[in-house]
Amino acid sequence: MKPNPNDRAPLKGPRLGVEIAGVHFKNPVMTASGTFGYGLEFARYMDLNAIGGIVVKGLSMKPIPGNPPPRVYETASGMLNAIGWQNIGAAEFVEEKLPGLRDYDTNVIVNIVGFELEEYLEVARFLNDHPGIHALELNISCPNVGKGGFHFNKDPRDTHRITAEVRKASPRLPLWVKLSPNVTDIREFARAAEEAGADALSVINTLVGMAIDVRSRRPRLRFRTGGLSGPAIKPVALRMVWETCQAVRIPVIGIGGISTTEDALEFLIAGARAVQVGTANFYEPAASERIALGLAEYCRSHRIDDIHEIIGSLKDYE
C-alpha cells in the first residue's frame, strides 16, 4: 500500500497524539488532580492549549471544607499535604469553572471524590450529562480524609465494587481509576478495576508520610499524616506504573514526581500511555507546557515520528 502523504507530514513534526478510551489527546501530558486547581488559575502563566488534558481538583457533589491547617510541609525532594478534599462542589464547578475551561483546546478530566459510595454515584451521575467533560477519574486513593475514598483501596473487592457502580452511574464518560501506592501489590487493585469496567488507570496517588517539628514535638501537619508527592516518589511511582502495565490491557497514566521531559519519557518507556505532572506545577506553573514541548523536541532530535515508538519500549538486558 502506498503511504498516504498526509499521514507523514514531516514539516508538522512528530505525532504526539494518544488515545485513551476513545478520547484523543493532542499529546500525552496532563496535569494531576489537586495540583492544578480548576485549571484557569494557571492560564496567565502558561498556554493551556499546549497540553493534552487537565485533571481538575477532586470534586464531590456538595462542597467539602477540607482539613484545618497546617496542611502542607516541604520535605526532601517533595512535600506532604493533607488538604482533605476541599472543593467547591460539582454544581459550582459546572456553573463557574467549566465554561471557562471549554474555551481552551484541551481535554478536561474530572477527578471525583466521596465519603460514601452513594456520594460517588451522585457526582458521577451529575457529571455524566455535562458537555465539555472528557473523562472521570475515580479517586479512591486519597490518604487525607478520615473515612471514605481511601477505604475502597484497601481491598480489591471494594475497588471492583465501586468501579462497577460508578461505571453504571456515568455510562457516557470514560472512567479512569486512580490507584493508591499504599498497598502490598498494586496489580491486584489494577486487575480488579479493569475487570469492573475501568477504561484506564491513573497510577499513582501520594504515599502516606509524616514529618515532626522536634521543637514542639508536634506533627508538621494537623492531620498528622499526609500524602508525599514530588520527585522523591518518582522511582516508586515508576516501578508501580511498570508493574501495572504488565498486569492489565487498559491504558495506564503515569503519575508521581514528574518534573522534567526525561521523567515523562521514563514513564512512557515503562508503558504509560500518558503522564500527569503534579507537584512541579506548584514551583513551576508552566512545567506541564515545558514538558509537552520537551517531548516534541526529544522526538524531533531523535528522529522519532510517533510517540508510540516510545510508549512501552523498555528494553531488557541481554
Binding site: 488559575e41 494557571f42 491547617p69 502542607v72 510541609y73 499535604n81 506545577n281
Partner: peptide, 23 residues
Amino acid sequence: ARMGCGLGACLGCVVASPAAEGR
C-alpha cells in the same frame, strides 16, 4: 502561612475563618 503554589491552586495555605459561610 506555608504555601505550596502561591497562586490559589493547592489550597495548602489556608486559615480557618468563622465568617465565611460554607467557606
